[in-house]
């Protein structure tokens, strides 16, 4: 932020990503529009794939998971713990908690914990979509399926927004909040459900 040219820019991007020069005609809200649209398309596409694709379910015993569903639950839990790191580091970056100004390393921590978190969820979601699909048989399954799609849509939207300049100040925290909330919901309806019904097994 301290490197913001000339101080004329709206406050953006405390995560330290260099803003991309924007064309002057863009207003704040339209800058948000394209990432939101793309993110929405991603979410819908995942849901449609999960619904239309024939579940195979025997991927359960392969796919590199030695202990099947337990491995999924633990991978997702890694993602969720890192998401808590995300929430904390974002709050520090925005000056809500902790030292001010935020230590230089919090930006790096936020970026890398986020990358590792979302990558940890990838084997899980591939298994969910490929082997099980979008399901709505119970409220838990429906909420889990919906939030799973929302999570990746919001993730893509947030990443795209980071590359754009001139977005309104609320956009990044709101999208980040949606990403976090969706992942939390996904985790609660899967891993926590698994640990409480099956026990904490590896």
């Amino acid at each position: 932020m301290s490197t913001g040219p000339g101080g004329v820019d709206p406050p953006t991007d405390p995560t330290g990503f260099a803003p991309v020069p924007a064309s002057p005609s863009r207003t704040g809200t339209t800058v948000v529009l394209v990432p939101l649209l793309v993110g929405g398309l991603v979410a819908v596409a995942l849901g449609v794939y999960g619904r239309v694709h024939e579940p195979t379910f025997f991927a359960v015993n392969i796919a590199g998971f030695s202990s099947g569903v337990a491995a999924k639950a633990w991978l997702a839990s890694v993602g969720f713990v890192l998401a808590l790191v995300q929430l904390w580091s974002a709050a520090v970056l925005y000056g809500r908690i902790g030292p001010r100004p935020a230590p230089r390393w919090t930006g790096g921590l936020h970026r890398w914990s986020g990358r590792v978190a979302v990558l940890a969820t990838v084997p899980v979601v591939v298994h969910c979509l490929y082997a099980l699909g979008f399901q709505d048989g119970t409220p838990r399954l429906l909420v889990h399926s919906l939030l799973g799609c929302v999570f990746y849509g919001a993730f893509v939207a947030k990443m795209l927004l980071l590359t754009r300049r001139g977005a309104p100040g609320w956009a990044l925290p709101v999208l980040g909040g949606i990403v976090f909330a969706a992942l939390a919901g996904v985790w609660l309806t899967s891993s926590l459900w698994f640990f409480t019904t099956t026990g904490v097994t590896f």
């Binding site: 990503f17 796919a63 979302v118 990838v122 298994h127 490929y130 795209l160 590359t163």
Partner: peptide, 23 residues
């Protein structure tokens, strides 16, 4: 750089495809 987030998305897509192919 501003490409960071795009690289993140690309990494997610690549890892996802690799896992899918393994499956």
């Amino acid at each position: 750089t501003a490409k960071g987030p795009l690289i993140t998305i690309a990494a997610v897509v690549v890892v996802g495809l690799v896992v899918l192919l393994v499956n």
